[in-house]
C-alpha cells in the first residue's frame, strides 16, 4: 500500500480554528534591502510578542540579490564567498535557524508570519511547521501544484523541493518565515553555495540543483499573480485586514540594520 503524502496531516486535528482566533493583519510585498528585511523580522516579532501590534503576515520584496544564511551556519562552510562577491551577491544572516537560501529578487517568494506562542502551544516543533505551512500547501494545490510538507521544514512537490520554512522563538513571539523558489538561474546555486554530499545523503538524489522544483516549472502563473493568490488565500483563511508598517517600526528596523544586520560582526558571527 502506498501512502499518499498529500493526505497525511502532521498536526493535531481540530486546531484549524486557531487561524481565525487571532486578529491578523496582512502586508503585501515592498522591495527592501536584504538586511532591512531581516531587521524588520526582528522588530515585528518583538512588537507582536510585546502586544504592541496585531499578529501579522508580511510578504517580502527583494531589492537586491543575496544569500540568507541560517542563524547557526558558518559563512565559509556554506558559501563560495569570492564567487558571491564577484557576482554582487550580498551575504546576510537571519535570526532563525535552517539553511542558506540564494535569493534573486524576482525569483523568490518570501513571507513572514509573526504570531503569539499560544497559536502553537502544545505542538511539537515539527507539528508547528506542518500547521503553520498548511495554508500555503493548500493554496499551492489550488494552483494545481502537487505540493506537500516534508519534515522537518521543507515544502516540496512532485516536481522537486519548492522551499523551506524556519522559525525563531523569542521575545514572547514566534517568527515563522518561508521562502519558495519561483525561478532559478541554472548553475547559479552550485556556483555560490557549497552543498556537500553529506547534506543530501538521505534524500536519494545526486545533486542539490536536482532537488529544486521552482514554481515556474510547475505553473504558468507569473510571480506577482502567485503572490496575489497567496495573499487572498490567507485573507480567506484568517479574515486578515490590510495593514501597513508604521514609521516607528521602519525607523527601528533601519537602526537595527546599522547596528546588526548590515554589519560583518553579525554576518560573520560564525565565520
Amino acid at each position: 500500500m502506498t501512502i499518499n503524502k498529500h493526505d497525511v496531516r502532521l498536526y493535531p486535528e481540530g486546531i484549524e480554528s486557531r487561524w481565525r482566533d487571532l486578529d491578523w493583519e496582512i502586508v503585501g510585498p515592498a522591495p527592501q534591502r536584504p538586511a532591512m528585511n531581516l531587521a524588520l523580522d526582528e522588530v515585528l516579532t518583538r512588537r507582536v510578542g510585546h502586544g504592541d501590534r496585531a499578529p501579522l503576515l508580511r510578504f517580502w520584496g527583494w531589492a537586491e540579490p543575496c544569500v540568507v544564511i541560517g542563524r547557526f551556519q558558518s559563512v565559509s562552510n556554506e558559501i563560495h564567498l569570492d564567487r558571491a562577491n564577484e557576482l554582487g551577491i550580498q551575504i546576510v544572516r537571519r535570526v532563525s535557524g535552517g539553511g542558506a537560501m540564494l535569493i534573486e529578487p524576482e525569483s523568490a517568494i518570501t513571507y513572514s508570519a509573526y504570531l503569539p506562542p499560544s497559536m502553537v502551544e502544545d505542538l511539537s516543533f515539527q507539528e508547528s511547521y506542518a500547521f503553520l505551512d498548511s495554508w500555503i500547501i493548500d493554496a499551492l494545490r489550488r494552483l494545481g501544484i502537487d505540493a506537500w510538507y516534508e519534515p522537518l521544514n521543507d515544502i516540496t512537490s512532485a516536481g522537486g523541493k519548492i522551499g523551506g520554512a524556519a522559525q525563531a522563538r523569542k521575545d514572547q513571539a514566534v517568527l515563522h518565515h518561508t521562502t519558495m523558489a519561483y525561478d532559478m538561474t541554472e548553475g547559479l546555486l552550485t556556483q555560490v553555495l557549497r552543498i556537500g554530499m553529506e547534506k543530501i545523503r538521505d534524500k536519494g538524489i545526486r545533486s542539490a540543483e536536482a532537488r529544486v522544483g521552482p514554481l515556474r516549472q510547475q505553473t504558468q502563473m507569473p510571480r506577482d499573480e502567485i503572490i496575489d493568490h497567496l495573499y487572498d488565500s490567507f485573507v480567506e483563511l484568517t479574515g486578515a485586514s490590510p495593514g501597513a508598517l508604521g514609521d516607528a517600526e521602519i525607523a527601528e528596523a533601519e537602526a537595527l540594520v546599522d547596528e546588526k544586520f548590515g554589519n560583518d560582526e553579525w554576518t560573520f558571527l560564525l565565520p
Partner: peptide
C-alpha cells in the same frame, strides 16, 4: 572549535 549547521536550537545562546 566551531559548531555550525542548518539545525534549529532554542534558545540560540545554547550554541
Amino acid at each position: 572549535v566551531q559548531v555550525s549547521g542548518d539545525f534549529f536550537l532554542y534558545p540560540e545562546e545554547a550554541l
